[in-house]
Simulated scan of single mutants.
Amino acid sequence: MSLQAGGPMVERWHPPAQPHGVGLGRLPAEPVLEGESGADPMNSVLGKVRPILEAFTADDSALPLAELVRRSGVAKATVHRLAQELVTWGLLEREGCDYRLGLRLFELGQRVHRQRILREAVQPYMEDLLLITRETIHFAIHDSLDVVYLDKIFPHRGLNAESRVAGRLPLYCTGTGKAILAHSPPSLFVDVVRHGLKPVTRHTVVSPGRLRAQLDRIREEGIALETEEIRLGYASLAVPVFAGRTSLVGALSITAPTYRMDAAGHATALRTAALGIGRSLT
């Protein structure tokens, strides 16, 4: 299904053409001494590169060296040296005296096979839901204690700024997260509670007992409704997506302002789309 100009907006990754012969190069070799298998991973080159790259947030266009040092916790001389190598590899780009994440990271992200297959499967159903509901549609997958938004499409009205493609939000207070958590092993619930249920808004459920009751109801009804737990004035209706009968692959949701959320009216379309995605994955 194609979207016409002036129609709904689509926030999605689109892989650029792969430049011929571009490689990551080699990391500098560091000696490994006998008995060091249990050494602190932060002492390795990769252990220092990771916090440098993760210092950037989705809202950062570029960061000065001093801010990279502060956020990463890595020594200034090391950050300066590694940043120059990351620029050479295309993982960072230089903008004056500042650094920003490089296009090479974007290119590598497109090669993750599982996510690419899932996006291709969900896109037609998300577009159908958008046309039916005229509300924001998300597809999210589970990673650690968060949901990661694999795809998002939305109409011009009521843009939802809390979520973004490749962005993360907690499992316990999002519609997609609750749908996933309700159909995951009990050990995941234990891990989420152990990590702490922190309020995002005044409506966020931070009681383990209340959250457990919510998840029990979601399992029974097959659908999750989150209201103002992640953003005031907004609600999300979500369902789990299974490949086959039992293989949980993610969750599909409709997000709308609370005054416009039609949970009863949208539930059937949402469930139908989830079943269609599941069939396309088997």
Rank of each mutant, 00 (worst) to 15 (best):
T174Y: 00
W89M: 13
S236I: 01
A182K: 00
A238D: 00
G96M: 02
A256F: 02
T282K: 02
K198A: 09
W13E: 15
G175C: 01
T57S: 06
T174K: 05
H142A: 07
A251K: 13
G47P: 08
I153H: 09
A243W: 00
G265S: 04
E220G: 14
D216C: 02
A256N: 09
V249D: 15
Q214R: 05
I230D: 08
H138C: 07
L188D: 10
L130Q: 11
M42W: 06
A273I: 01
R119M: 14
T204M: 14
R279Y: 00
T176L: 06
D60Y: 01
K152G: 11
F139E: 10
T268H: 14
E34H: 13
S207N: 12
S163R: 08
A5P: 09
R100K: 03
T174Q: 04
S2F: 14
R212V: 13
G35N: 03
G209W: 11
R164I: 07
S144F: 06
A235D: 03
L129R: 04
D98W: 10
E221M: 09
T201D: 05
K48R: 10
R212W: 12
S2M: 11
F242N: 01
S37Q: 00
V10N: 14
V10C: 10
A66T: 10
S72Q: 05
V205T: 02
P41V: 12
V193N: 12
L24F: 15
E34Y: 10
D128K: 06
Y259W: 08
V165M: 13
E30P: 05
A121R: 05
K178T: 03
V32Q: 15
I180M: 07
L171N: 08
R217V: 15
E229I: 11
R71V: 03
G47T: 09
P240S: 02
D40K: 09
S280T: 00
A267L: 07
R157M: 15
E127M: 11
D59Y: 05
A140Y: 14
S280K: 01
G175Y: 03
F189H: 13
D262L: 09
P124R: 00
L108I: 03
L275C: 02
P51K: 15
Q123K: 09
G73R: 15
L150C: 12
T246S: 04
L118W: 15
I141G: 11
A267Y: 02
L211K: 04
V32P: 14
A224G: 03
M1G: 07
A5T: 08
G23F: 15
R100D: 04
H266I: 04
E221A: 12
Q18V: 13
L86C: 14
I223T: 15
Q4A: 10
E221C: 12
H203A: 12
